[in-house]
């Protein structure tokens, strides 16, 4: 029991640190990838190939002057980015990154903990993350930040629904919400094939959830509504960025787990450890995020909401019903 708790704490520490470090290099990768799409080299001055750029950026963030608007609601203002970041990190607790390892005779699952409501846990926690944005917009007490925060919140709530419904199809096919059982259920074929509709809805919702292009009107159309993090500087702003990128990773991991079999390689090259497969799949999704950002124009806010409610939600519903019929009668 004690061992289990200690292991869990150890894993949490390792995963959190790795995620935060990963965030730094994700920004580097994003800049390089976007740059290449735009025929530019990307950061290449700070360190060899610009590899020390994230360190420079991190240092800059930490050393920036802390400006807290006088009219801001201090407690909420300081709490909000923490909520976002915390929720983003917490969501990672149920994602398995590889096959269980055998250490000192113990079977150690590569997962922090595995409740039998695994997937629901992730959905719940990411929903809590939305508060970080709402509070951020509100606590800044600036009309642009407030509007941006409200819009962003509305956007995320709308797409949460479609996302949740898209996942239901997977849950039905696996017969469980436990992440490990979902991975096990994909031993024959990855769910992306039977659940292609669900996957498409899930992916689009994920892009909207993470406020990435083409759904980044709130962040990018910054001439009028400057986004919920207008009034944030330095490390607090960096925390919002961390939350955004880690959400991207969480979302990619979830997509890899639910639709692409997680750490399983489907028996190809069995000597390749599961974690490598997992990382490859996550990398694929992250690359997709960046590719889409480099290419597509932005949706206007009303079209964005229309897409979430009038297109994705019905499609996800249809997918769910279809899957339910299929699972109950055919399987």
């Amino acid at each position: 029991m004690v061992v289990a708790v200690v292991l869990m704490i150890l894993k949490s520490l390792i995963v959190s640190s790795l995620l935060l470090a990963l965030f730094a290099y994700l920004t580097y990768i994003e800049r390089k990838v976007l740059a290449r799409f735009q025929l530019r080299p990307g950061p290449n001055r700070v360190g060899p190939f610009g590899l020390l750029q994230p360190l420079a950026d991190g240092l800059k963030m930490a050393l920036k002057e802390e400006i807290i608007p006088r009219q801001a609601d201090r407690a909420l203002y300081l709490l909000a980015p923490a909520i976002s970041l915390f929720a983003a990190l917490m969501a990672f607790a149920v994602i398995p990154f590889g096959q269980p390892m055998h250490i000192f005779g113990q079977v150690v699952p590569m997962q922090i903990f595995s409740p039998n409501v695994g997937v629901l846990y992730v959905l719940a926690v990411t929903s809590v993350g939305i508060y970080g944005i709402t509070f951020g917009g509100w606590a800044s007490q600036s009309k642009y930040a407030l509007l941006g925060g409200l819009r962003s919140t509305a956007q995320m709530i709308s797409y949460e629904l479609a996302m949740g419904l898209a996942i239901v199809g997977v849950l039905l096919m696996a017969g469980a919400a436990d992440v490990n059982r979902i991975i096990a259920a994909q031993h024959a074929v990855w769910f992306i094939i039977p659940q292609i509709l669900g996957f498409v809805v899930y992916f689009i919702s994920g892009v909207a959830e993470t406020n990435r292009a083409p759904f980044d009107l709130v962040e990018a159309e910054s001439e009028l509504v400057a986004g919920y993090f207008t009034e944030y500087t330095g490390l607090k702003w960096a925390m919002y960025m961390m939350a955004e990128y880690i959400n991207m990773v969480t979302f990619s991991s979830l997509a890899a787990t639910l639709f692409l079999g997680g750490w399983s390689g489907l028996g190809f090259l069995p000597w390749v450890p599961g974690i490598v497969w997992y990382l490859l799949k996550v990398a694929l999704f992250i690359f997709l995020f960046m590719w889409i950002r480099a290419t597509l124009p932005r949706l206007r806010y009303d079209a964005l909401m229309a897409l979430g409610w009038k297109v994705l939600l019905p499609v996800a519903l249809v997918n769910t019903l279809g899957t339910a019929v299929f699972v109950s009668h055919v399987l």
């Binding site: 735009q38 025929l39 530019r40 292009a213 980044d216 480099a294 597509l296 932005r298």
Partner: peptide, 16 residues
Amino acid sequence: HAMDIGAQGLFFYCFR
């Protein structure tokens, strides 16, 4: 125009 609307890559291609 494309860059204003979000398709940033096009800006670089046109300028090339």
